[in-house]
Design a protein around this nucleic acid. Structure first.
Length: 287
DNA sequence: CCGTTAACCTGAGAGC
DNA sequence: TGCTCTCAGGTTAACG
């Protein structure tokens, strides 16, 4: 589920809630996530102070004062919830979408702080934690990833070199984290709409204008999504707390059969399944 | 190396 | 009500 903007929102909330705090204890209800929870997980976290929290791509990185790094990927359905001990009935959901009740059986990992409990909840268990013992190990893990759209290295020269004569569709390249980091299915579709590029277009056939637009609009779309608190599609209930609102700004995603929102375009948004993912596009203005 | 498919999971919603 | 089927914001091993 979460793509770069949603993970950024989660990171910001985590920073407000647990940065500089000490993990008093750890409870593991189910270690069987996408990858089995590292066996030293509790040992590394217990007693450690969270020195800093950052994000790269769709990953949240907790820097601990014992030199270790905890890396978290939310997969498709991972969320984080915080319960303040004093107010037992109210959950502070610092996730990018709101679920009114914590589905208790999917609370796989719980971190206890002084006045706070943090729950990692993940029904589908596609999310995972990794632990790195030092900065080098952390960096070498992220070496396999391409730049984020915000990076200076995500430029014309890079795109030309990577996409030259490639027959794979640009939609699939945008989802390829080795090419560019942080974009998922929603934002790939949205970005291509702004670029007026058909998602199925072969990457080697992109024009210089296409490449320039990709660089420009990937930044614009992701930034706006962050500003709107990310996209919240499911479990949308009106309860106190934060929810993303970028879903109200979707131009193509989840808009099958609706009118194209581009000025003076009479197109209708199409939906197709392509390499196991949905593509949404206007077949008139996206060439 | 390149591109595609299937698999990993659970839950929601549609259709019957 | 309940059954079956499809789909979901991601990643990656395995295959041709």
């Amino acid at each position: 589920m979460p793509e770069l903007p949603e993970v950024e929102i989660v990171k910001q909330s985590l920073f407000k809630n647990i940065n500089n705090k000490i993990i008093k204890s750890v409870r593991i209800n189910n270690p069987n996530l996408r990858f089995k929870l590292p066996c030293n997980f509790s040992h590394v976290l217990k007693g450690a102070k969270i020195k800093y929290i950052k994000r790269f791509s769709k990953y949240i990185i907790l820097e601990l004062d014992n030199g270790f790094y905890v890396v978290l990927h939310l997969g498709m359905s991972g969320t984080i919830h915080i319960l303040k001990k004093k107010v037992k009935s109210i959950y502070t959901n610092i996730s990018f979408y709101k679920s009114p009740m914590l589905p208790k059986k999917h609370n796989h990992v719980i971190l206890f702080f002084d006045h706070i409990k943090l729950f990692y909840n993940d029904p589908r268990r596609f999310g995972f934690f990794k632990i790195f013992s030092n900065k080098n190990a952390l960096q070498s893990f992220f070496q396999n990833y391409g730049p984020e759209p915000f990076d200076k290295s995500f430029n014309i020269k890079y795109l030309r070199k990577k996409l030259y004569k490639k027959i794979k569709s640009i939609k699939n390249y945008l989802l390829d984290q080795k090419f560019v980091s942080g974009i998922g299915n929603i934002y790939a579709n949205e970005i291509l709409f702004f670029c007026k590029i058909n998602p199925l277009k072969k990457s080697g056939n992109l024009t210089k204008v296409d490449l320039k637009n990709l660089i420009l609009f990937s930044k614009i779309v992701l930034k706006k999504a962050i500003k709107k608190g990310g996209s919240s599609i499911k479990n949308f209930k009106n309860i106190n707390g934060k929810t993303g609102s970028f879903q109200n700004n979707f131009k193509v995603y989840d808009r099958e059969k609706l009118k194209c929102l581009r000025k003076n375009c009479t197109g209708i948004i199409k939906k197709k399944i392509f390499t196991n993912r949905s593509i949404f596009y206007c077949n008139i203005c996206q060439k």
